[in-house]
Write a protein that binds this DNA or RNA. Structure first.
Lengths: 233, 233
DNA sequence: GAGTGGTCTAGACCACGGT
DNA sequence: CCGTGGTCTAGACCACTCC
């Protein structure tokens, strides 16, 4: 008789998903404990544990010690985006990447930035305006602020040939990142740089980066018209 | 002698991250194999494996059999968004949720939709226009198409009191989702429903859902002015 | 072929948190 | 308290892939 292939965690995940979908364990239902499932499916508890842990990470179930495992009311999955360096994103698409520094200015932090990044009004910041092109077509306009109190050696870089994004990722360690996605109505300046009409809608990403509680940098990135950030899950 | 607390996988992750950040293993470098690390850190290989597996999932390292583990050129983390049911998103923020059906229409699939979703021109689709409010303020305008060939029982729902998003998530199993984020310039209709000016920039999400290769539904969701999708990582 | 990661097992101890 | 998930171990076999 064919020995049934060893039962793996992926198989378990599939079986559990099936039981959830076909209503055996409806939303909110209490799923049997790991030991029971291990017996039922004929595998080790560790295998069940891995399957259930991943389902929990994916947002399908809720697990609590003692309380057990329950199916979520709305089994919603999480989207994952790889936030890459812009040069890589463009080159991956097969286009040629070009970078241009528009403007570089050192000053004390404006008040709105102080509030946003928790800086002192006397802190020095470096402001950069940059353009990123994909095959000579405008791809992204970057408005970057670097906290020189936290990243002093940025003051010595001219950023003429390397973008701040790429330099920072390579040179400066960070611990936390916040991303905010939104839409921006194109101003005259933006329309000019991104070669679009005034009032066009621009997909916008704000990125803030910290190292252990102190802010390193803040950037607003405006993408050209028609840009879409896509993900499969 | 104080027995050093048992070495856990989180500790290993932290140690590896530290070695990457301080340059011990620079971008592209080959990280020692699991057995070596297990000896070095004084734990079982399974523990190292879990740590490295998670770092790989987070996009910090690349792992290949035989080739070994390498630090990614740009150790960038992935953003995670929990894509929730809109009602839950609003209610979590403490506001009251209100839903309104604007329009419901059954017809054959228009050609652009056929192309997008791989439908036949004779396929029946259900089109819905809906509004979602947060504390009576316009929050999202939803333009939804449901493939009735794949979800026939949607034809029997009037969607007057429950949104298609919520109904679908609850009633219809799916296997794949694609999300696209972009920006849209407000038309007269959108400005009217979302209570904003014509030409305002609207954050937009397109969501396409499949079950084992056949498309179930496609939706374009326009958010009110000022909406930001945020994530920390 | 041989080295590396991928996975499974059987058993154990621990920590959280309902009861 | 004590059941449940969370984690670790030591050992094993497998599968992929580079050489």
């Amino acid at each position: 008789m064919a020995k049934t292939h060893r039962v793996g965690y992926q198989k378990i995940k599939a079986l559990v998903m099936q039981s959830i979908r076909n209503g055996t364990w409806g939303p909110g239902a209490l799923v049997p404990g790991e030991v029971d499932l291990a017996v039922q499916y004929g595998c080790a508890r560790a295998t069940v544990n891995r399957a259930m842990r991943e389902l929990a990470e994916e947002g399908i179930i809720d697990r609590k010690r003692k309380a057990g495992t329950r199916v979520k009311q709305s089994p919603i999955r999480q989207a994952k985006f790889s936030i890459s360096v812009i040069r890589e994103e463009i080159e991956t698409s097969g286009a040629a990447y070009r970078y241009m520094l528009v403007n570089r200015m050192q000053s004390t932090a404006p008040s709105w930035l102080c509030a946003k990044l928790d800086l002192k009004p006397t802190d020095q910041v470096l402001q950069l305006h940059c353009m990123h092109y994909s095959d000579k077509r405008p791809f992204q306009y970057e408005d970057r602020w670097i906290n020189l109190s936290a990243v002093p050696n940025a003051a010595d870089i001219d950023f003429e040939t390397i973008g701040p994004n790429e330099w920072l990722v390579r040179e400066v360690p960070f611990s936390d990142v916040e991303l905010k996605f939104s839409a921006t109505r194109a101003t005259n300046t933006l329309a000019d740089f991104l070669d679009c009409a005034v009032d066009d809608a621009l997909f916008t990403v704000e990125r803030t980066t910290w190292l252990n509680g102190t802010n390193l940098t803040f950037a607003r990135m405006y993408f050209g018209v028609g840009y879409q950030l896509a993900t499969k899950l």
